[in-house]
Design a protein around this nucleic acid. Sequence first.
DNA 1: TAGTGGTCTAGACCACTAG
DNA 2: TAGTGGTCTAGACCACTAG
Lengths: 241, 241
Amino acid sequence: MHSIFRDSSIPRNVQLADLFRQRIARGIWPLGHKLPSLEELVREFDVARVTVRQAMNRLAREGLVSPQQGRGTMVTGGAATDRWLNVQTTLDDLHKVYLDTKPELTNLGESVAMPQLTAIDGTPAPEYRLLRRLHQRDGVPYCVISIYLDNRIFNRAPQRFRNEIVISVLRTMRSVKVARARQTLTINAADVEVASHLQIPVNSPTAEVRRVFNDPAGTIIYLAEVTYRGDFIRLEMNLRV
Amino acid sequence: MHSIFRDSSIPRNVQLADLFRQRIARGIWPLGHKLPSLEELVREFDVARVTVRQAMNRLAREGLVSPQQGRGTMVTGGAATDRWLNVQTTLDDLHKVYLDTKPELTNLGESVAMPQLTAIDGTPAPEYRLLRRLHQRDGVPYCVISIYLDNRIFNRAPQRFRNEIVISVLRTMRSVKVARARQTLTINAADVEVASHLQIPVNSPTAEVRRVFNDPAGTIIYLAEVTYRGDFIRLEMNLRV
DNA sequence: TAGTGGTCTAGACCACTAG
DNA sequence: TAGTGGTCTAGACCACTAG
């Protein structure tokens, strides 16, 4: 076996991560599939286990793979585009913001509906429960949200999902595993309906957040479309040097 | 020496990171100061070096500390707020977006001026060069930017700074070390001047980005205020599970 | 040249998953 | 129970910084 590490000035874990990224991009490790185990990769590349893990950690931070203790590591994403800035955070941090904000919920309607999906979102569930609601803080409305929740999951605790923060409820259900979570933020202007709910003028700036959770099999179990008042959004970005 | 690790169900590197975070929050390790070396921390807590590094990596990702090979690890930040979502990316990624976007630059003016600063931004440089410019892509203007650059740095390559992407020039200067970089994104509406530059209607949605770079001593060497057309902004956020 | 962070090895034990 | 990821140890060598 000859070593694949040609450039000793680049750390092995970075070279490994690059190589793994290539395998994912080229479909050698297709989306949704299980990667070889750490042990196998250790043997294939003749490096220490820790080095493989460092490489995997990189890919996990990029959202390409999702390691799961006891199960294996799944491919959960494709290549990132360079046109937009890709940023990282954690589901925990997102949840903390919800806890800290302590929103008051107003229901705007409930139905069964299918969301608009694209191929990269994942595999659709058979049926979704659509929950529309308004979030307020100290009586001031700051976002309207449409949540599409896999109806099989909704039916396990309908009352809780209707009255609590959906992400909080999902986190307490041990049978629900979120393997991948991501969201996209864009900037928009309020239409008449949104403006009326948020009590802002039509055409005021808003932020649109589209959030998707997949389970380990790639099924889209949660999809939310959130429209925030623009002045409620503030993103602190730490740029690692 | 008795072990400080009481809860064996929480990984030691996480407990260590929590403890370090406390020391920073309480001012035992004040902002701008150098932390004990990894060796010293290994002895103090009687853990493996790798474990201390894992903990430091966490804090570095949060922007609290900035490890510098050969120099030591500096405290570069305070506690994060829970009200806003904190996200992470890298200076490299930000730079890649600039390279990929290949902006055409139009100068809107140059002067010597002081930016509006707050205490947490860092220590001001004695004097700043203010460069105002418009970025276009394929002839379409998409942002106006005001760059305050430490005049001592500007004077090393005035022509390059005037005609190239400032971040690119900074990266090529080996004598310039960026120890900390961060930016804040908020949402706004275009005023008359911005609307005219960006060729959009007054009150159209915009994104405001305020970006600050500090050198290892905490001096603010670069501060940029960027106003983007709202429809040009799209943030992909990966939420680690 | 001494001090410091960055990476890597080889091996160990644990926690979790799924049959 | 076998397979898999998560964490940790003890020690080594390297790259970079600053006097």
